[in-house]
C-alpha cells in the first residue's frame, strides 16, 4: 500500500538522483528509472529544503514565510507535490506520530 504523506511526515530527497538548479527552477533525474522531472521556482525551493530530512510542517512554515500564500492552500499544494515526487521515487518518507 502506498505510504501516505501527512504534515508530520519527514521527507528527504533520495540519493539515487541528480538535480540541476536552473536559474531558480530545477530539473531532477531519477538515476534508477531514468525519469526526468521539472520543478518551477516554488518547487525548486521545496527541493532545496528537502536535501536534508525535514517535516512537512517545517517546509510549509518556510514556504509561508517566503511566499505570500494562504497557509492551508500552501499545505495542500505542498502535499500534492510531495506525493508526486514520492510516486517518481525522488523522495523518501518517514511517518512519525503527530503531537
Amino acid at each position: 500500500m502506498a505510504r501516505k504523506i501527512t504534515v508530520n511526515s519527514i521527507v528527504v530527497a533520495t540519493k539515487d538522483q541528480v538535480s540541476a538548479d536552473l536559474s531558480g527552477e530545477a530539473a531532477i533525474l531519477n538515476l534508477k528509472s531514468g525519469v526526468y522531472f521539472g520543478l518551477n521556482a516554488v518547487g525548486a525551493s521545496i527541493w532545496k529544503l528537502i536535501q536534508e530530512p525535514r517535516s512537512v510542517n517545517e517546509i510549509n512554515d518556510a514556504l509561508v514565510q517566503e511566499y505570500d500564500v494562504d497557509p492551508d492552500q500552501c499545505e495542500k499544494d505542498l502535499l500534492a507535490l510531495l506525493e508526486e515526487l514520492l510516486s517518481k521515487e525522488l523522495i523518501e518518507v518517514t511517518n512519525e506520530k503527530g503531537p
Binding site: A20, L22, S23, G24, E25, A26, A27, G34, Y36, G38, L39, N40
Partner: peptide
C-alpha cells in the same frame, strides 16, 4: 521558454 522548460525540451529531444 524558462530555463526549466528549456531543459525539459532538450531532454525530450536527446538521443539516449
Amino acid at each position: 521558454l524558462s530555463p526549466r522548460e528549456s531543459f525539459m525540451a532538450l531532454i525530450r529531444s536527446a538521443f539516449r
